[in-house]
Amino acid sequence: MLKLALADCQSRVDAVLAAHIDALPQTAPALKAAMRHGALIGGKRIRPFLVYAVGELLGVDKAKLDRLAAAVECVHAYSLIHDDLPAMDDDNLRRGKPTVHIAFDEATAILAGDALQTLAFEIISEADAGLAPKAQVAMIAALAKASGYLGMCGGQALDLAGEGKSISLEELTRLHNLKTGALIRAAVELALIAADASDADTAALRAYADAIGLAFQVQDDILDITATTEEIGKPQGSDLDANKSTYPKLLGLDGARQTADALVADALSALAKMPYNSQLLADFARYIVARRV
């Protein structure tokens, strides 16, 4: 069931993303091509999946979720393009393919990231999105907060500042709650707003999102040292090469795995408080720490 749901999400959101990018005029063809490369290079589509899974759980029509899924993936794609830049993580591979600054050039990659970020808010704010204006404003605010100083950008700044240093487990957790967790929580938040969810459902699903967001990063840290370059689609051991603090580095490999398992247990506990059949979200939480990519 989960495998089919993930595949459906990937094909669906990719079609929406392609339609929005392809509809752009040919004002700057290289930039448009770079945006397409960065957004449609592949990937698990974790954040769009959460938009669809949470939204459908709460009774929102899938067609109303398409734009939200595409918007959150635009922001994620922009963040990866910028993360890969020489001034950031300096990676040449992303999902087994050349990163945008390698496939094009550094200036075009910067602009492609900028353009995808702003496209996300254009998609959410379109008048024919089938959403109430009040809900659209709330969604824009949630996605902006998750993307900026109090979210991904702040987390990336902490990540860069921590290179070559030994940071505490508390600092590492705070860093990744911002850099990785904030956008995962935003994906859930978009669906909650679309559903006009109850306070109880909102609290439970926010707790679920926080737990799987951190579990996702812990598993990424584990894969950085246990998976091959071919499996993860980027150079194996890149975090170690950058002398970054990671969960395996601070806790040991077994300790990191125990932490990931404990976070999944927290996510399942949050779901248990809801009066719905949330088996898909439960399976997804387990998938987060079982994946090899």
Rank of each mutant, 00 (worst) to 15 (best):
P248T: 05
N277M: 09
V137T: 13
R206P: 02
D199Q: 14
P25L: 10
A197P: 08
G55C: 11
R12H: 11
A39T: 05
R36I: 00
L4T: 14
D105W: 01
G148N: 10
A138F: 03
A141C: 13
S198T: 14
L111D: 01
A200L: 11
G181N: 04
L58N: 12
A194F: 10
I212H: 00
D261S: 14
A39I: 04
G233Y: 01
Q258E: 15
K64H: 14
A146V: 13
A103D: 07
D210G: 05
A242Q: 13
V75I: 15
A19T: 12
L192A: 04
S245H: 02
F49Q: 06
A161K: 11
K179F: 03
A161Q: 12
L58Q: 12
S166F: 06
A23C: 09
R292D: 03
F49L: 08
A197L: 09
L93R: 03
D224Q: 04
E126Q: 15
A209Q: 06
A282M: 05
I222R: 05
R36G: 14
A209I: 03
Q136N: 11
L31R: 04
T99Q: 02
D210T: 10
P48V: 13
L268F: 02
L253K: 07
L271V: 09
G252Y: 04
Y52N: 02
C153Y: 11
A272E: 13
D261P: 02
V60R: 06
I123K: 12
L150W: 13
L192N: 11
S166E: 11
H101S: 04
S269G: 10
A138K: 13
A146D: 08
S238L: 07
Q117G: 05
G148I: 08
L263D: 02
L251V: 04
G213E: 04
D221M: 06
C153A: 15
L214R: 09
A19C: 08
N177H: 14
R45Y: 08
E230W: 01
A200D: 14
Q219V: 00
I102A: 03
R36L: 06
A23N: 09
D196S: 15
G113T: 03
Q136K: 15
S147D: 10
I46S: 07
K62C: 13
V13L: 03
L65Y: 01
V60W: 11
M152L: 13
V100C: 15
L223V: 06
R67N: 15
C9N: 13
K273R: 14
H76V: 08
P235A: 00
L280C: 00
Q236I: 00
A227F: 06
L250H: 00
K62G: 15
A18I: 00
N243R: 15
S125T: 15
A209L: 06
K97M: 04
S269D: 12
L65D: 09
A33N: 07
E73Y: 05
L169K: 10
L172A: 00
K32W: 05
L271T: 06
L172N: 01
I123S: 07
A71V: 11
D84H: 02
L268P: 03
K165E: 07
A146G: 09
A262D: 12
V51K: 12
I225D: 01
T118E: 06
A242H: 12
A211I: 10
L2M: 08
A63M: 12
K234G: 02
N277P: 01
T27A: 15
Y247K: 07
A186R: 10
A132P: 07
A63P: 09
M152S: 01
H20K: 12
K244E: 07
